[in-house]
Amino acid sequence: MTKITVLLTAFCLGSLSAIAQLTFPADGGNKKASVSERVGLTDVTIHYDRPAVKGREGKVWGQLVHYGFKDLGFGTSKESPWRAGANENTTITFSTDVTIDGKPLTAGTYGLLMAVQENDVTVIFSKNSTSWGSYFYDPNEDALRVTVKPLKDRPSVERLKYEFTNETDSSAVVMLEWEKWAIPFTVSVNLVQTQLASLRNELRGEKGFRWDAYQQAAAYTADHKTNLEEGLRWADYSINGQFVGEKNFNTLSTKARLLSLMNRSTEADALMKEALPLATLQQAYQYGRQLINQKKTKEAMALFQDLAKKYPNVFMSNMGLMRAYSAMGDYKIAADWGQKALAQAPDANNKANVERLLGLLGQGKDVN
């Protein structure tokens, strides 16, 4: 019994010598937050703490947030910018290379700092993303600086926040908003090159064991008229790759598109003759529309006439002939085929579309 008592006493004394690390809200009521958005294929994530105005309107910018660089009285830095938030370092992460207001920045995580002035703000991306606040800021660790204009006299925002605005497929404006100011900077990506890099990477994994993955990658290069030689290699592999390749309309027609874009029309035409017998009605119809868009109206007419023989008196065949005759400028015959298609419309949406096209023909307008 005495032995057990001694052990318990030793355990309790040992426990008291350590401080329990419990979790509480951040000091001063600041709230931790993060915001993330995908720009193209690039993930942009900001981690920050959200201070509140707390009745200090008119005393935030230039007072609570000091102007320029300042000795904060602690740490190793004698010229510290603002930490662009509260408490720990505000950080921003980019999953791929980006540009910030047109200046390049490599993928990675950065400390996000700001040197605020009354009429401009220097936004700093520091390679040091782990220090506390800006007390240890070192300009030698800057990866990038950009200067932006603050937006003033805006609707008041009580708690500091970051938002993504003005999004496009390849860019977004990151906006810090607090009190009546907003501080914007633009993140842009090279979407085509980022997409190509992603395709190369995915084709090295399990998706690279499928013909359709190579065909989709090849089609992307054709759609964007870029890296055509690389796209042609992908197209070839989708047809002939060991254990992967398959000859079908998609693979053959994609290669034909690339050959055509590379001014190898004789090879492209020969490949399409091989591809068309493998096409479904839907695939052949879409290819016929593609020919019309390329102003190859005679080829489109021949294709749609062949389809009508192979699939007589069906909705899509009649639609094809309507489009072909319209492209040739014979709106009366086109309308006759349109009426036949109208009677076979498979649903209300298709019926409404045919009626719309017939209306155009009645006005003497091409439906394509």
Results as ranks from 00 to 15, higher is better:
Ala10Ser: 06
Ser260Arg: 14
Ala345Gly: 11
Gly73Arg: 08
Gln216Ile: 00
Ala84Trp: 09
Ser238Ala: 13
Asp169Ala: 14
Lys54Cys: 08
Phe209Gly: 11
Gly338Gln: 05
Phe69Thr: 09
Asn318Trp: 06
Glu179Val: 02
Ser260Pro: 08
Asn30His: 09
Ala284Gln: 00
Thr99Lys: 08
Thr221Tyr: 02
Tyr220Met: 01
Asn263Met: 10
Leu199Asn: 14
Ser95His: 01
Ala256Thr: 00
Ile333Lys: 15
Lys31Pro: 00
Leu16Asn: 13
Leu191Trp: 10
Leu8Ser: 12
Asp223Trp: 00
Leu271His: 08
Val116Lys: 05
Arg233Gly: 10
Lys365Asp: 04
Leu252Tyr: 06
Ser317Lys: 00
Val314Tyr: 07
Leu72Val: 13
Lys295Met: 13
Leu151Phe: 02
Thr280Leu: 03
Ser260Met: 13
Val192Ser: 03
Leu307Asp: 01
Thr297Val: 15
Phe243Trp: 12
Ser126Lys: 03
Ala256Gln: 07
Val192Glu: 08
Leu361Glu: 04
Glu141Gln: 15
Leu271Met: 09
Gly205Thr: 11
Glu57Lys: 14
Lys54Thr: 07
Ala345Tyr: 05
Val60Trp: 01
Leu191Ala: 13
Ala20Tyr: 12
Asn201His: 09
Tyr162Glu: 08
Phe243Gln: 14
Gly241Glu: 11
Val35Met: 09
Ile333Glu: 13
Phe69Arg: 13
Val123Trp: 09
Lys59Thr: 08
Ser326Arg: 05
Asn119Tyr: 10
Asp236Ala: 04
Ala308Leu: 11
Asp101Lys: 00
Ala268Lys: 01
Asn350Phe: 10
Trp132Gln: 05
Lys295Ile: 03
Asn201Gly: 01
Glu79His: 15
Ser134Glu: 05
Ala86Met: 11
Phe304Val: 07
Ser126Tyr: 06
Asn353Pro: 02
Lys78Ala: 09
Thr93Lys: 12
Leu7Gly: 14
Asp43Ile: 07
Arg356His: 00
Glu267Lys: 05
Glu230Leu: 14
Lys332Ser: 03
Phe136Val: 09
Ser198Gln: 11
Pro81Leu: 11
Val173Thr: 15
Gly231Cys: 06
Leu307Trp: 04
Leu281Cys: 01
Asp142Cys: 06
Thr96Glu: 14
Thr109Pro: 04
Ala115Thr: 06
Leu144Phe: 04
Glu79Thr: 10
Leu291Thr: 07
Lys365Glu: 03
Phe304Asn: 02
Arg83Gly: 02
Thr99Ala: 01
Leu196Tyr: 10
Gln63Asp: 13
Arg50Pro: 03
Asp347Phe: 11
Asp336His: 08
Gly108Val: 11
Ala10Thr: 08
Ala222Asn: 09
Thr280Lys: 03
Met322Gln: 05
Ala268His: 02
Arg289Glu: 15
Leu361Cys: 01
Ser198Ala: 12
Leu361Lys: 06
Ala218Leu: 03
Asp223Leu: 08
Gly231Ser: 04
Ser131Lys: 12
Gly245Thr: 08
Ala20Leu: 08
Asn128Trp: 10
Thr106His: 07
Asn248Leu: 05
Pro51Met: 08
Pro277Trp: 01
Asp71Gly: 08
Thr266Lys: 14
Asn119Leu: 10
Ala302Val: 11
Leu112His: 01
Ala52Tyr: 07
Lys103Leu: 09
Leu8Tyr: 09
Val157Met: 07
Ala279Val: 01
Ile19Val: 12
Ser265His: 10
Ile4Glu: 12
Lys225Cys: 00
Asp306Thr: 14
Met272Gln: 02
Leu342Gln: 13
